[in-house]
């Protein structure tokens, strides 16, 4: 068995182990102050540090288990419903980018504009090509969400910054929800 194969098998548990070791010294900004406050098992950093210790322990066990299973040439079976192989490709990368961009734009251009743009982009990404269909779904969807959450649930959704904030308010007025 090559050392590369071993490394691949051990990368995940080693990552968790390294993370646990790294985080143990970064639980609080001032470990000295936390130590002064600690009495026995009770202290501000005690619980996370206890958890990190347990994570480190199970990471080592995991690594041992992987090595044993790898030597036996059996694929380790994971949890029930989660054990689904999911693809990562260009379309998926773009989808993830769209979702993250939507989250970012919410605070910048506001919920109405960001949602409208996101719905258009997502429909296009999903293969919908008819402009009327995409426009209707995006427009009506945004309006329904606005009525549901801004009007009925009275949620103070992000309106955006500067001119976009004013645009959102104008739109709310137009729709009779402000």
């Amino acid at each position: 068995m090559s050392s590369g194969a071993y490394l691949r098998e051990l990368s995940a548990p080693a990552g968790f182990l390294a993370g646990a070791i790294f985080l143990r010294s970064h639980v609080v900004e001032s470990p000295e102050m936390a130590n002064q406050m600690t009495r026995g098992l009770v202290g501000p950093a005690s619980w996370p540090q206890l958890l990190l210790l347990v994570i480190a322990f199970f990471s080592v066990l995991w690594a041992v288990e992987r090595v044993v299973l790898f030597k036996k040439q059996t694929t380790p079976r994971l949890a029930t419903s989660d054990a689904l192989a999911t693809p990562i490709n260009l379309q998926m990368g773009v989808a993830i980018l769209f979702i993250l961009l939507y989250g970012y734009l919410l605070a910048v251009i506001g919920f109405p504009a960001a949602t409208l743009l996101y719905l258009v982009a997502w429909c296009a990404l999903g293969g919908m090509r008819r402009a009327i269909q995409v426009s209707l779904i995006s427009l009506l969807g945004t309006v329904v969400f606005l009525y549901l959450f801004v009007k009925l649930a009275a949620m103070p959704l992000e309106r955006g910054q500067g001119v976009m904030g004013e645009f959102s308010i104008a739109l709310y007025r137009l729709l009779g929800i402000y």
Partner: peptide
């Protein structure tokens, strides 16, 4: 599914 997915994200 495309539209449902988009609405679920919102």
């Amino acid at each position: 599914p495309t539209v449902l997915g988009a609405f679920i994200v919102v």
